[in-house]
Write a protein that binds this DNA or RNA. Structure first.
Lengths: 350, 350
DNA sequence: CTGTTAGCGCTTTCAT
DNA sequence: ATGAAAGCGCTAACAG
């Protein structure tokens, strides 16, 4: 049987209250140093461990924060972007004695919710941090919880309790920086299949839509025309590059496979990156090790965002009131893949 | 005030026991259907929510699994590899009503532990899954917990309660496949700085050391000599390639920046990937979207590993006994970056 | 400074 | 089939 406060109390001939004060609340000043000594010695000797659950039951605080995110299909690919946020969140919470716990939400094809995990109904978490993938409006599919909730990158934009990167501004910023560097034929690379359906009017994660909208708005503001390239098929990609002759490509992000595709295709056309073709990403994860060629574009420091989320959550918990929403924006870097458009042939400038 | 069992009981003129049976245990068969109906209706109407903490207190089970990992320095870069494992773990646990909670361990420079987070002392987690980054032997720095613990990729190799990929075999497998494809001059690319200190006898994560050992052993078994290339500086890297003229490079992994470095340097030498230079990674994360050029090598399905960890943990919890350790190994794929060494000049074969 | 009492919300006997 | 009562380990409130 586990050792409890009572056992220590009995051992020392004290009340459980005294032992609780001394061991779990550091209220040693209320007792004789000698008493404290004796209690601590007994606790060590009997290997006393406080029972967090019992403490929770009295204090009504679990010190647990639920990180709520859509479940990943077991066969599906995953979104690594969540990781730095989660680490930042956990880091910020841990410093204050809180912990983050994962809660998966089953999303339906329709964008609705199947059923909420029962733990969300069980008065367990002190607060929730929600990362919900789908389009705005989804918020109202989730019931009102009686705990504070912070919405991160969830397509929820309200004056309070929201945290997100300004993706429209991200799109505009990268586009503007390229234009400032002399680029005129700037194409948007929306690689994966969801993109084509989006351009045809279908749904897509708000962040991607906003980035594209920002790109388009900035292009138009400069009297330039937007162009989109989709698909990863090499021959097709090469043909499209030859046809459009862009001097810069705006990318959602860049992995090894796509980097090789771009570099190899560029070489086939006799181009070099970045001399004849600049690559600018909209989402360079700030805490991912950057090795070799530095990919240019706008960063997103999700680790910092996670820490911010922790801070906001703890503040809400402390004050009992909502916190003002926070908008994030990354830093732009030219890196090794963005160069001024010195080599644009004059006849190609619109 | 929150609605409890008692309130429902009072509302329905029943005992708390009856309400508990009906609402939280599905023991409806012991009561009149009409009674059950009334209770459920009242629960809905009064918005009754079970209190998980109180349930836990009685059952002595929190249904929480601690995922214990070293804390990341707030400024540092992070190891994304943990993510798919964590998602897999959470996925496997969620299906059975368990949840994963993050616990960060403060690591000292010396490889020891500063202090354990207090939650590990508070009888909170039903079990732990530990991912400990440092060298073997560290296990004994952690105290014996009175809960089951599973060690993932922690440099702990015992017959029970361990889960890890066989990294020596990984090194051998990739090397062997390249040799079978006709390669003879196969260099090991240990990019980052930790590598040079390792070769000089310093410490490094066991998985990297094992991979290199596997490579070396397989090379020697075929009468071939190991060679190592380190560093990401382009000119130096190009010079080293020209000097060694390897037909294949074994990499720990491959990101966009390194991919560009390799492709651009290869082109400078007049080589093409994979025609004159194959790239084989030891650690291709299986659930990361593969787009564009498919990077060849050995995969590591950390998502599956996480699910396995969940399965093992739940089994331990069920049986109360340790589980046999499990060794993983990935799948080898040629991809688009590995080709047979058809173009090796005869005079260069050792 | 220290002890006593009364719960937190639920579940588990045990009795009816 | 249903109810009464005890108690999980801890702490807040109150006494002295």
């Amino acid at each position: 049987m586990a050792i409890g406060l009572k056992d220590i109390a009995q051992e020392c001939g004290l009340s459980a209250k005294a032992v609780s004060d001394i061991l779990n609340h550091g209220r040693t000043h209320s007792y004789r140093p000698e008493t404290c000594e004796r209690v601590q010695e007994a606790a060590r000797r009997l290997n006393y461990r406080p029972n967090r659950t019992a403490q929770t039951m009295r204090s009504r605080r679990t010190h647990m924060i639920g990180f709520v995110a859509p479940a990943y299909s077991s066969e599906g690919l995953m979104n690594y972007n969540i990781h730095p946020f989660l680490v930042g969140l956990s880091h910020g919470l841990t410093e204050r004695g809180y912990h983050a716990s994962l809660v998966e939400l089953k999303e339906l094809e329709t964008g609705g919710l199947d059923e909420l995990p029962s733990i969300l109904h069980e008065r367990f978490f002190d607060a929730l941090v929600i990362h919900y993938g789908l389009s705005p409006g989804v918020r109202h599919l989730l019931p009102e919880f009686d705990v504070p909730a912070l919405w991160w990158d969830s397509g929820v934009f309200e004056p309070q309790d929201c945290l997100y990167r300004d993706e429209r501004k991200a799109g505009r910023t990268v586009t503007r920086r390229l234009i400032e560097a002399g680029h005129r034929r700037i194409a948007f690379f929306g690689g994966h299949s969801g993109w084509e359906s989006y351009l045809a009017g279908g749904p897509i994660h708000y962040s991607l839509a906003h980035r594209y909208e920002g790109y388009r708005a900035e292009m138009r503001a400069h009297g330039l025309e937007e162009t989109v390239i989709t698909g990863y098929e090499k021959a097709e990609f090469a043909a499209r590059l030859r046809e459009l002759e862009p001097t810069a490509l705006i990318l959602l992000g860049l992995g090894a496979g796509t980097a090789l595709l771009f570099d190899q295709t560029a070489h086939e056309l006799g181009w070099r990156i970045p001399r004849e073709l600049s690559l600018a990403v909209l989402d360079r994860e700030a805490r991912l090790p950057q090795r070799g060629v530095l990919v240019g574009g706008l960063s997103y420091d999700r680790y910092a965002a996670g820490r911010k989320a922790a801070e906001m959550t703890l503040q809400t918990l402390e004050t009992g009131a909502p916190v003002p929403s926070v908008k994030l924006l990354g830093d732009f870097e030219m890196g090794d893949t963005i160069a001024p458009a010195r080599h644009v042939r004059a006849d190609k400038i619109p």
